[in-house]
Design a protein around this nucleic acid. Structure first.
Length: 738
DNA sequence: GAGCACTGC
């Protein structure tokens, strides 16, 4: 502790009191540390005109998407089902499931596993005692798979076959036997039913994606399997990690194979061969090289649409412009020209702009889609024959801040890294869905061999406090003994435990506090925001905080179109207040409601209508939870205040109660430093405080690492509030050294 | 003094 204090420099500072969290630290350091994922470096060779090597046909377009190309869609449904590759192994699968608790199915796109396996289980009596639950990482997959299966079973969706995603439960209790759901939702269900008694079989689909919730579920199900010998678990994954999964779930530690509790079954897919082309010499600029390659494909290759993978919005925009230049003809605003239509595709586009890539561009015209990673798993564009893969992607990383600080701080950020072999294969597979295709990889063949096999699981790359809170609520109070499929580094767990302790979610003994911690776990928002919501009654600003929390859950409420940035900024200025971004967001929401949620008003003010509607849904869900727990505005506060400035202060004090760990002050050097670790951080240019007067003290909602470490979603606060609201965390001291 | 890939409760 003394040593820690000595490290701080000059002036009057607030300091973190780590005395109470020392125990947590001791617990956390006991946890075994996992090897950090190595981040491969991609080296560019000298610039120059590069050419592609000759055709090769060794592509293995393994991909597992919920959108399945169906070459038999003119046949009757039962004939279609029998033609799927999975049908050939149906009996073997059912036999293995009788014998083993866990079945790992290695299956490729178009094998029919996601739709057929649940029906085989239904038909062979696995649903008499309980349901078959199928998890998916994404919501659209749940809804589309459920409707397909309902159609094949000739039943109304929501009866025998149903789905459950957030805000949308389309099942009938007692009647629904096949239930598709998101992974996160099954984790929620386990809070009420830890042994999942209503399920006889659980099937986890797309496990190779290794989302945070996939890993949580894998660990939890392993525990449940030990307690419930009647339960069966089916793991569907791509080739890459089948043996890891088998090893993870096989409880047989003897050499006697007949005692194995897990088995593997392989199913071939139904995709077309994809020719792989590599550069013979590395390129200096993959954006320019992509545009050059697309142009060459358009001029020399037979008809067929093109999909380009780049890493970010800016690259996509630049590449679209370059391609249009290269194709060198007048283009109208639609991007159409001489037999080609060039379209961008990324998450920040509006729905209507995104829909354009699915629309037909007409016979004789080649569609060229330039996309981010959104096209790798989340969406499938039909008709793609050529893929151009730059070999890079943006990936969330969670690591020690490289910014100048005298104490380690873990922060989240995005980095551009090379893709993995699995990811390169997935991208290539996008070219072979309807007929044989070609992929152009903008790197050398030797570079491919150097790629990591798979992208590291999200569990190793993210802030763990939400996950740890979830596990605690599920009764996993000993992280030491929890079997993570990929154990996260001890430092990440330590940081999560410290944060949860600071906001009062857990005790020094790492137990969930009652009722605060328990309720925070049930809140569908990150722990710090949950804290803010649960104490909002005490500050008399329940409605306002519910709005702020909901607005922080949706992306891009304020839109700034490239072409109309000036006007957008002018309109956005109407909502801006010097108290910061969270109160600005509150203003936007209030204004939207005042205008009767008018869509045209949104357009005029460059506000995303879809996002606001979603925020409204989340807000209602939050408010109903607060009602359930009797979190209501304190009457005394309500009566004695009324003015808007006082109201703003109440809201900001309540925000401080949730985000006090993220406090920063304006150092005399003119830079902001965090109170917790004295890390230098800058105000992000998207913040309203970027142009307004810089406050002495503020709290931020998140840190974004790009070239520098930026704080986003800011709120101005008073220094005194910190010691007042979180006395356990802050101590006022005068530090005189240095 | 710039610029966030994608999910999910």
């Amino acid at each position: 502790m003394n040593c820690f204090i000595n490290k701080l420099k000059k002036a009057l500072l607030l300091q973190v009191n780590f005395i109470s969290s020392f125990y947590l630290w001791a617990v956390a350091t006991l946890l075994c540390s996992a090897p950090m994922s190595s981040r491969p470096q991609y080296k560019f060779l000298k610039p120059g005109e590069a050419s592609f090597s000759s055709d090769r046909s060794d592509a293995d377009p393994t991909s597992c998407s919920s959108f399945i190309y169906n070459p038999n869609n003119k046949l009757p449904l039962d004939r279609q089902r029998q033609r799927l590759p999975i049908y050939a192994v149906k009996k073997h699968m059912l036999f293995l499931l009788e014998r083993c608790q866990t079945l790992v199915i290695e299956g490729e796109t178009g094998s029919g596993k996601s739709t057929q396996i649940p029906q085989y289980l239904l038909e062979s009596g696995w649903c008499t005692e309980g349901m078959v639950g199928v998890t998916q990482p994404r919501r659209v997959a749940c809804t589309s798979l459920a409707s397909r299966v309902a159609e094949e079973q000739d039943c109304l969706l929501g009866t025998l076959v149903g789905y459950t995603i957030r805000f949308d439960d389309n099942t009938t209790p007692g009647q629904t036997k096949l239930k598709y759901m998101t992974e996160a939702l099954l984790v929620r269900e386990m809070m009420g039913d830890p042994l999942l008694r209503q399920y006889s079989v659980l099937m986890l689909d797309e496990v190779h994606e290794r989302t945070l919730y996939t890993d949580i579920l894998l660990g939890l199900l392993k525990k449940v399997l030990k307690r419930r010998k009647d339960l069966r678990v089916i793991i569907c994954s791509a080739t890459i990690d089948v043996h890891d999964m088998l090893h993870f779930f096989n409880f047989n530690k003897t050499a006697d194979k007949s005692k194995d509790t897990a088995a593997v079954l392989s199913v071939t897919g139904r995709t077309f061969p994809v020719d792989v082309h590599y550069l013979q010499e590395a390129c200096a600029d993959y954006v320019k090289e992509s545009a050059r390659t697309v142009t060459a494909v358009h001029k020399t290759q037979p008809p067929g649409d093109v999909l380009v993978f780049l890493t970010g919005v800016e690259e996509v925009t630049q590449c679209v412009e370059l391609i249009i230049q290269h194709l060198n003809t007048k283009n109208d605003n639609t991007g159409s020209m001489r037999g080609a239509s060039v379209l961008p595709m990324h998450g920040s586009l509006s729905t209507s702009e995104q829909l354009r890539v699915f629309q037909s561009v007409g016979a004789g015209t080649r569609k060229i889609v330039v996309a981010t990673n959104i096209a790798e798993t989340s969406i499938t564009i039909p008709g793609i024959v050529y893929v151009v893969d730059c070999g890079f992607m943006k990936l969330r990383v969670y690591s020690k801040s490289s910014a100048s600080s005298n104490k380690e701080a873990l922060t989240e950020g995005l980095s551009i890294v090379t893709t993995s072999k699995a990811s390169a294969t997935q991208r290539a597979g996008r070219a072979g869905r309807t007929r044989p295709g070609k992929v152009y990889r903008l790197y050398e063949e030797s570079e491919y061999a150097a790629l990591p096999d798979a992208t590291p699981p999200e569990m190793l790359r993210t802030n763990l406090s939400p996950a740890v809170l979830n596990l605690l609520a599920l009764g996993i109070d000993n992280m030491l003994r929890f079997e993570f499929p990929s154990p996260p580094p001890a430092s990440h767990l330590k940081a999560a435990l410290e944060e949860l302790f600071a906001i009062g979610a857990i005790t020094e003994g790492v137990a969930l506090t009652q009722p605060l911690g328990q309720r925070m776990a049930e809140m569908p928002v990150p722990p710090q925001l949950a804290k803010m919501l649960l104490v909002s009654g005490e500050y008399g600003c329940r409605e306002e905080i519910a709005t702020v929390a909901a607005m922080l859950q949706v992306q891009s409420v304020l839109v700034t179109p490239h072409a109309n940035a000036h006007n957008a900024r002018k309109m956005h200025a109407k909502f801006q207040v010097e108290e910061g971004d969270l109160l600005t967001l509150l203003n936007v929401y209030v204004a939207w409601e005042r205008e009767q949620r008018c869509k045209r008003w949104c357009g005029r003010h460059f506000v995303n209508h879809k996002s606001l509607n979603r925020a409204s849904e989340i807000k209602s869900r939050i408010l109903s939870l607060l009602d359930k727990w009797d979190v209501t505005n304190d009457q005394d506060i309500h009566q004695t205040t009324g003015g808007s400035s006082i109201s703003s202060m109440r809201v900001r004090r309540c925000i401080t109660a949730g985000l006090f760990c993220n406090a920063a002050y304006l150092h005399h050097s003119g830079q902001y430093r965090t109170v917790r670790s004295n890390t230098t951080l800058a105000i992000h240019p998207s913040s309203v405080l970027y142009t307004l007067q810089q406050p002495k003290w503020l709290v931020y909602n998140e840190v974004l690492h790009t070239n520098r470490a930026y704080m986003r979603d800011l709120t101005t606060i008073e220094e005194d509030w910190l010691t007042e609201i979180a006395p356990h965390f802050f101590q006022r001291r005068r530090v005189t050294d240095d």
